[in-house]
Design a protein around this nucleic acid. Sequence first.
DNA 1: CAGATTGTGTACCGTTCGGTACAGATCCTA
DNA 2: TAGGATCTGTACCGAACGGTACACAATCTG
Lengths: 191, 191
Amino acid sequence: MVRKIAERGDAIPALAEIFREHGFAGASLSEITKRTGLGKGSLYHFFPNGKEEMAQAVLDDVAGWFETNVFMPLRESEDPAAGIDQMFKAVIRFFHSGRRVCLVGTFALDDTRDRFASEIQSYFAVWTRVLAAALKRRGFDTRAARETAEDVVAGIQGALVLARAHDDSALFTRAMKRLHQRTKGVHRDRP
Amino acid sequence: MVRKIAERGDAIPALAEIFREHGFAGASLSEITKRTGLGKGSLYHFFPNGKEEMAQAVLDDVAGWFETNVFMPLRESEDPAAGIDQMFKAVIRFFHSGRRVCLVGTFALDDTRDRFASEIQSYFAVWTRVLAAALKRRGFDTRAARETAEDVVAGIQGALVLARAHDDSALFTRAMKRLHQRTKGVHRDRP
DNA sequence: CAGATTGTGTACCGTTCGGTACAGATCCTA
DNA sequence: TAGGATCTGTACCGAACGGTACACAATCTG
């Protein structure tokens, strides 16, 4: 009757999706048991601190994914342009071309932020910092690199909001293309 | 014992703030009664359909504010640059320099969007459209106007996310300055 | 195979949830 | 000042909430 198959990590993708869809407050235990396939017993065995610990685990998982697939390429690519290319590829893949929302952004907007302030803060801070460094290596001066990095990270978050508001993933990919272009230096709005 | 002072509209600013802070799911009736000062009786007298109707009223109110303070200036200013100036002034004021979150953006991100899909969609659609028209009048060609408008609206939403993540309103005002600059035409990232 | 460790289902806890019912207070109109 | 319309506090509802307790099953270790 009992399945011993489950590991803690197996639940995390489902948990992530639930928090993305409903936010922290809206993610109910009943939905969590349903979608993870884990009963309350297992859930509280793996996450003794309940929902908060589940969300924490998801945030860690996201941070790890970004570290590997976004930050590391930005830091370690010999050619900074290649690192930035990889960043955009990874972002488009991770957010399912705008059909998937940013969990950290969602948490940042409501009072959930207070529970996970440092994780949320560092997610964006690290992203902005490593992107700015890559832009600098690419020839941007310090100030322009920092500003452009901020604009790009904000632009991605904003594009996710708009894409979801319009239920239009093409909007997202178009926005990514333009942001990518901006990382290449002088940019004209009026051709 | 009973105060007859209350009008439906009096509750809306408090309701808006509550939904901004907690999202739709997280906004509990107990907090709503506390912060509006209205008992359940009054609340359900003014909003027979409960929370959903309260949120609807708040969305209408926001739409009205933007119509007056953002969209109308963009549409009707003789000088489109002046209209855009007014837009940024209004946005900075409305969002309290980034200390206040966008209610519509918050709703857009989680499953609350499904309840208010058309209101959310049209908020962003109208904004983008009237801004693009102003940019066109300012000399942008059709395509650049549309793209820049999309980038600016997304940029504002993203800046709100980042400002709140970092609890840093200066980040928001800086971002607004740069977005404003972009509405003035050719733009350089690498000076 | 014994015994600890790990994982799981179920019943249950008190609390809070959104929402309803309704008597009565207050206000508006005439 | 009468009487209807509008507003409000309170008591209450069933359901769902997050979380706990615990017996027991599966697995791992020796």
